[in-house]
C-alpha cells in the first residue's frame, strides 16, 4: 500500500504526460496553421484528432539509422538522457492542492521534495548534456554546431533564470514548490510583485526549452535540424517528446513560481464546499498552464529567430543585469515592507 500510491501517481503522471505531448503537437500544428490562414491537420479522424497518434505509430515502424562514423553508445545514450531528465523533473512539480480521495489525503505530486526548485534547476542543467552529446556523437558538422550552440545558450540563460528564481525564493522563504504557491494567495502573485523577474524568467524559460525565438540548436534553415539531424525513428521521437515535455515543465514552473499556481483572487474568498475547492483549484492551475502552452506556441509562430550574437548579447548584457535589478528590488521590498 505504501508503495502502491507513488507507483500509481508515477503511472498517471507519465501517461498524462505522453498523452498531453501528442496533443500538444496536434495543437501546435493547428495553431500554426490558423495563424498562417491555413486549416491544419484535418484528415485523420474527426478534426484530425488522430493525426498525432498516427504519427507516433509511424515513428515506431521507421528504420533506425545510425551514422557509420557516429559514436554508437553515446549516440544512443543522448536521447535517453534528454527524455529521462525531462520526465523526472515532473516528479517534483505539484498539480494541485491536496485532495481527499477514498477517505485518504492524496498529494497531487509524485515526490514532495523540500528542495524542489533546486532539484528542477539541477536536472534542467543536466538536460543540456542530452543535446550536446547528441550533437557531438552524430559526427555531423551541423549536429555539432547545434550541440555547441545549445550548451552556450543554456549556460548563459541558466544564470539569469537562477537569479530570477532567487527573487521568488526570498519572498517565499522556501524551496518547496507547495510553499511558494501557497505564498501567492490573492493578488500576491509573484508576477505582480516582481514583474522584471517574471519577464526574465519567462525569456530564460523559452531559451531553456529551445523554443522559437531561441531555437538556435535546431535552427532548421541553417543547421538542417541541428542536434537531431542524424536521428530517426524512436530516438528522434524521444528528442521530440523531451522538447515538448520541457515546454510543459516550463509552463508548469512559470505558473507555479509567478502566476500564483492554483490560486485565483475571488475564488478562495467565494464560499465553496470543502469537496469542490481542490478540484476547482486543479482546474484553475491547468487552465493557466494551458494558456501558457498556447503562449509558447503563439510566440513561436510570431517572432523570428535571434541571430547567435544577438542571443548572447541579450543573455549577458540584458537578461543578467535585469535579473540582478530584480533581485535588488525584491530584497528592498522584503527588507522595508516585509511581504
Amino acid at each position: 500500500m505504501v508503495i502502491l500510491i507513488p507507483l500509481t501517481k508515477i503511472a498517471i503522471a507519465i501517461g498524462v504526460l505522453l498523452f498531453v505531448v501528442t496533443y500538444l503537437v496536434y495543437f501546435e500544428r493547428k495553431i500554426s496553421a490558423w495563424i498562417q490562414d491555413r486549416v491544419g491537420p484535418n484528415r485523420v479522424g474527426p478534426y484530425g484528432l488522430l493525426q498525432s497518434p498516427a504519427d507516433v505509430l509511424k515513428l515506431f515502424f521507421k528504420e533506425d539509422i545510425v551514422p557509420l562514423a557516429a559514436t554508437k553508445f553515446v549516440h544512443s545514450l543522448a536521447p535517453v538522457i534528454s527524455l529521462t531528465i525531462a520526465m523526472s523533473t515532473y516528479a517534483v512539480i505539484p498539480f494541485g492542492p491536496d485532495i481527499n480521495l477514498f477517505g485518504q489525503k492524496v498529494k497531487l505530486i509524485v515526490a514532495d521534495v523540500d528542495v524542489g526548485i533546486l532539484f528542477i534547476l539541477a536536472f534542467a542543467s543536466i538536460g543540456v548534456y542530452g543535446i550536446t552529446l547528441s550533437g557531438w556523437a552524430s559526427n555531423n558538422k551541423y549536429s555539432l554546431l547545434g550541440g555547441l550552440r545549445s550548451s552556450a545558450q543554456m549556460i548563459s540563460y541558466e544564470l539569469s533564470m537562477g537569479i530570477s528564481i532567487v527573487g521568488v525564493l526570498i519572498v517565499s522563504e522556501s524551496l518547496r514548490i507547495y510553499d511558494i504557491i501557497n505564498h501567492q494567495q490573492g493578488w500576491m502573485w509573484n508576477a505582480f510583485i516582481q514583474p522584471i523577474g517574471f519577464i526574465t524568467f519567462v525569456v530564460a524559460a523559452f531559451a531553456e526549452t529551445n523554443r522559437l525565438p531561441f531555437d538556435l540548436p535546431e535552427a532548421e534553415p541553417e543547421l538542417v535540424g541541428g542536434y537531431h539531424t542524424e536521428y530517426s525513428s524512436l530516438k528522434f521521437a524521444m528528442f521530440f517528446l523531451a522538447e515538448y515535455a520541457n515546454m510543459i515543465i516550463a509552463s508548469l514552473l512559470i505558473v507555479a513560481l509567478y502566476l500564483g499556481g492554483w490560486h485565483l483572487p475571488f475564488v478562495e474568498t467565494a464560499s465553496l464546499s470543502e469537496g469542490w475547492l481542490p478540484l476547482i483549484s486543479v482546474g484553475i492551475y491547468l487552465a493557466k498552464v494551458c494558456f501558457l502552452l498556447f503562449v509558447f506556441i503563439w510566440v513561436r509562430w510570431s517572432i523570428p529567430r535571434f541571430r547567435y550574437d544577438q542571443l548572447m548579447n541579450l543573455g549577458w548584457k540584458v537578461m543578467l543585469p535585469l535579473s540582478l535589478v530584480n533581485l535588488a528590488w525584491v530584497s528592498l521590498l522584503v527588507y522595508f515592507f516585509k511581504i
Binding site: 495553431i31 496553421a33 490558423w34 495563424i35 498562417q36 490562414d37 491555413r38 486549416v39 503563439w298 510566440v299 509562430w301 510570431s302 517572432i303
Partner: peptide, 14 residues
C-alpha cells in the same frame, strides 16, 4: 503577437 492573434480567427484560404 496581436497580428498573429488576429489571423488566428480569420477565415482560412485552404
Amino acid at each position: 503577437m496581436m497580428l498573429t492573434l488576429k489571423h488566428l480567427f480569420k477565415p482560412k484560404f485552404t
